[in-house]
Design a protein around this nucleic acid. Structure first.
Lengths: 360, 360
DNA sequence: TGCGCCGGCCTAATCGTTTTAGGAACTTTA
DNA sequence: TAAAGTTCCTAAAACGATTAGGCCGGCGCA
């Protein structure tokens, strides 16, 4: 008489209670009543009873049998980064509405971890992948592709790998940002990026280079080695900024670099934009709220999410066709959002002020 | 002769190749070789071959058979909120090391969504739950508890529900913050919180009330109705601040409220801390970097994560004992991190300055 | 009356594992 | 030499669903 552990209802319980076969119940539940010529009367009884007892099929058994899990594996660089968090949230919502679930993981751009995660997703039999590829995971991805599991990359791609991808035209974004700074009268613009060799970073660098070359201006590029050691990164950046007093503007290639940059600039006691104009690639709460507000190259997050999920779901649902589908490779335009950090103030001549300080 | 889809290796393939039974392979792989008296010779051959072909068991089949998925469902309010993101990341790491995987979802404090998610986790047969409970989900949780699925709540709990939980002593945190402001000479302190009736918010409010009552000071509480409409929230906050010019300090009950608050204060052209001191519950990148840096009541994220996962794993692994385990209900202390936003500057008398401005 | 057809439902195989109950071969004991 | 142990491994029943194929009875038609 002790309190019983409530057993989960099984399809067999339903069948037994209604005195029909398990198959009948299953067919009704999967909407195959009509094509299997189950009478409406029986179908209705089944549905009514299922609803009454709140039966939920066991997804494990279902997936084992059908080979479909309706789960998509999402591998991003860092889910705590607002850019990835936002895109992930948008993707999740759309996938949910279409009956797919998302499981996410962060690689922190660590190749080994990325491999581990993809391997874990394989074990869990995800139906498809959305991946922000870390460096050197071509092999793992090749394996996935060989299994014909639908896959979409975003933010960056791996040259030479025949995959779908959705990326942003970072070269154009940075080119526009640089041009904007030049129009504002800044003439010595440095570009701060990471030491990554990945496509998105190379593109952004290329955009900077094209812009300064076109105007025959000096080119100053800083490659920051990102490490766990906050202070080391800050020290590195501060040294760079301090050693390049001739620069009057800085473009950061990604949001977390900009955050380091703002802290470095603040510690050096420099003022934005009077001493140094600043533009960041990627938007962020902080940039909107910072004083002064930071000009950014915003990525079209909604559009990225929509394209990614559309491409993936198209592949997932048209799995019937055995013919290899055409690759979808989408490049979206970013938007320059001009705020105070890159706009010359009427009153102060930033450069002059800074040189005085340096001299003092 | 066309390129073949590489079939996954099965345990039966291994068995066939080694000319042993499937059972033998399975026993060896599950470390039951010794207790099943499999000879070392066979065990080694199995392991060697498994490694060679890179066999990975099908988790779906395994889980179906054993009833264990080694997956923990994590339901938080908003995974994009740095507090939850950090705790989630810490929990994930620890769980991973102990062989468990985490799947997360955000409720956005929406009861219906929370129910949907828990229901989805039930379908997926998670082994345990970690939940930041939205309001009114007692019933769902009761159902989980009746199934004896190990569960730990955190950040807040549901009074009356006999569950494990890990929370932070928000009352003490806010009390300390209020006291600190009083010591700094601020005497008219308002408390800005949400309209939530949940325990964590009520606790924080209680801490404020105790502090002001002890000093027989006026009590000013603003309940912000958080909505999707950014501008509406901002307008509401700006109106409140504007109508309470006598206040010289503001305490915000949670990080995203503070972010709204900073924007409101900035739009009103008020200066921190001269016109208005500010303290936020919860730390955030933004608060460290803001000018001036914002004083916060920091929650012990590592400790929260460690307690949560330890309690959960203890229940998950000692499932053998049928006796109901004692409930673990942990309350951790927060830390006041004093920064410039709550410290009177020697030079300026904030209150005076502000009154002048208001008069002008 | 016999045949085919069709509507209505069920039987049973299957997905890839785990795990219990035992069985064959060999060794020891009496 | 038969009984009793050991040692090493296997057969087969689960787990909970899906789904191809089949069976049966009734109806229309010649």
């Amino acid at each position: 008489m002790s309190e019983k552990v409530k057993k989960r209802t099984l399809i067999s319980d339903i069948a037994a209670h209604l005195e029909v076969s398990i198959a009948t119940v299953s067919l009704v539940l999967n909407g195959k009543a009509k094509q299997s010529r189950i009478s409406d009367a029986v179908a209705e009884r089944v549905l009514a009873y299922v609803k009454e007892v709140g039966y939920k099929p066991n997804h494990l058994a279902k997936s084992l049998r059908t080979g479909k899990t309706h789960v998509i594996g999402l591998v991003v660089e860092d889910i705590a980064n607002p850019f990835f968090a936002t895109v992930a949230a948008l993707i999740e919502r759309q996938a949910f509405e279409r009956g797919y679930r998302i499981i996410y993981c962060s690689t922190n751009n660590d190749t080994a971890r990325a491999q581990e995660l993809i391997s874990m997703f394989q074990e869990r039999h995800v139906d498809g992948y959305i991946v922000v590829p870390a460096a050197d995971i071509e092999q793992q991805l090749t394996e996935i592709l060989r299994e014909h599991t639908p896959t979409v990359l975003f933010d960056r791609y791996l040259p030479g790998l025949p995959t779908n991808y959705v990326v942003v035209d970072g070269a154009q974004g940075i080119y526009d940002a640089t041009s904007h700074l030049l129009e504002q009268g800044f003439s010595n613009i440095a570009f701060v990026t990471t030491d990554s060799a990945q496509t998105q970073m190379q593109d952004r660098l290329a955009g900077y280079q094209r812009a300064v070359q076109e105007h025959q201006l000096p080119q100053t590029v800083k490659h920051v080695a990102v490490s766990k050691d906050r202070e080391a990164v800050l020290a590195d950046l501060m040294a760079f900024i301090d050693e390049h007093r001739q620069c009057d503007a800085l473009i950061f290639s990604t949001n977390y670099l900009s955050i380091y940059g703002l802290e470095a600039i603040s510690r050096l006691g420099l003022r934005i934009p009077d001493d140094l104009a600043v533009i960041s690639y990627d938007d962020h709460d902080l940039f909107r709220l910072y004083t002064p507000a930071i000009t950014v190259i915003a990525q079209p997050v909604e559009s990225i999410a929509k394209n990614v999920i559309d491409i993936l779901l198209a592949e997932l649902t048209q799995c019937a066709s055995p013919a290899p589908r055409a690759l979808q490779q989408v490049v979206l335009p970013p938007t320059l959002v001009v705020r105070q950090s890159s706009v010359r103030r009427a009153a102060a001549q930033g450069k002059k002020v800074r040189k005085q300080e340096a001299a003092g």
